[in-house]
């Protein structure tokens, strides 16, 4: 039996037919894009950076360690959210393919961050737990976990508006807030390292993570826009809409706090708190616009201009840096 729609509850025997005229062609497209972007940590010679790592100054090292620590458990968290949270409620075949591919790619990312920690003999136990021990990182994960666990414990009924709101919020927190705001904030730290000639092979891997995350972000945006289209009642609830905006802005504020603590009063990898904050405002504005909100901060230009380097075709000196151009066939 075939049930239509994005979410619902079906038997495992349902929806095992792929239509040649899919209801959501975008998920087919996103599935194909993600498939083409698949890569493996072994393609990068991370170990090459070991001398760089040893030469980092204490503050540089802290930024690097915190970033790796944050990603290492957060990538697993994204996986958990998908598996336990809203994934079981997806019923459209291509949407499921697109999100399972995302799940698979989160494994690659965990594997990648794990191999970084192994390569530089970093304190793995401490770093995996950093999101428990560091109060700000804890909050950054908790804001997501609190909401998603409502789904984990079976509270989201896909056939009620209330349940759909819960599901929407969970997608928002996972794919937009965590992957589209928190992750993007930390990406800038990594790219600044390469810009200052440090940790180049690790950052080559992060460039690949960025490609993946931008696709995951799009998975989330599409799912949310479709939910809104199919459940017009959600947008009618002014309070809920307000709440969603507040969640986004509160999350950004948490990140501002974190950035201030790490970068306040200093320049690390050529970055200052003020430009990072402005950058995050820029990113948050983009996310808000993507969901149909007005921008909150009105920052129209990415202040971290070196990031434009990520936007271009890339030519690598093969003998020098792991190339990320051969990974898509």
């Amino acid at each position: 039996m075939q049930q239509s729609g994005l979410i619902g509850k079906t038997s495992v025997r349902d929806n095992i037919i792929i239509s040649d005229n899919p209801r959501y062609p975008i998920f087919k497209e996103l599935y194909i894009k993600q498939k083409k972007a698949i890569w493996f940590p072994e393609e990068l010679n991370i170990q090459q950076d070991v001398l760089d790592y040893k030469a980092l100054t204490p503050v540089e090292k802290e930024v690097f360690d915190m970033a790796v620590g944050y990603f290492s458990s957060s990538e697993l968290l994204v996986g958990n959210v998908l598996v336990n949270g809203f994934f079981p409620l997806l019923i459209d075949p291509y949407a499921k393919m697109s999100f399972t591919t995302q799940m698979f790619v989160e494994n690659i990312h965990s594997d990648f961050f794990e191999s970084i920690m192994q390569s530089f003999a970093m304190d793995r136990d401490k770093l995996y737990r950093i999101t428990q021990t560091d109060p700000l990182l804890y909050k950054k994960q908790d804001i997501i976990i609190r909401e998603v666990d409502k789904l984990t414990y079976g509270k989201g009924d896909p056939y009620t508006v209330a349940g759909r709101k819960l599901i929407l919020k969970s997608i928002l927190l996972n794919n937009i807030v965590m992957e589209g705001i928190f992750f993007y904030s930390t990406f800038a730290h990594f790219f600044a390292m390469k810009d200052t000639g440090k940790m180049k092979n690790v950052v080559s891997g992060v460039e690949l993570v960025l490609i993946d995350e931008s696709l995951h972000l799009q998975n989330g945006i599409e799912a949310i826009l479709i939910l809104l289209d199919e459940t017009p009642e959600i947008v009618q609830d002014e309070e809920f809409v307000q709440e969603i905006q507040t969640v986004i802005i509160d999350s950004a504020s948490l990140e501002f706090e974190y950035l201030e603590r790490m970068f306040g009063g200093k320049t690390i990898y050529g970055l200052t708190f003020r430009e990072l904050k402005r950058y995050l405002q820029y990113i948050t504005d983009r996310r808000m616009e993507e969901l149909g909100f007005e921008p909150a901060f009105h920052v129209d230009e990415n202040p971290l201009k070196f990031l434009q380097k990520e936007d271009f075709k890339k030519l690598t000196n093969f003998f020098e840096v792991s190339s990320t151009e051969y990974t898509n066939y």
Partner: peptide, 30 residues
């Protein structure tokens, strides 16, 4: 290469003509 990351410094309209949350009025953020 065909698959690239989201452009970092160029704005891309992913929403198209869909309004998303757009029918609501904005709140003033900080």
């Amino acid at each position: 290469k065909t698959v690239k990351g989201e452009k970092y410094t160029t704005q891309v309209n992913k929403r198209g003509a869909r309004r998303g949350f757009g029918s609501r009025s904005p709140v003033s953020a900080a």
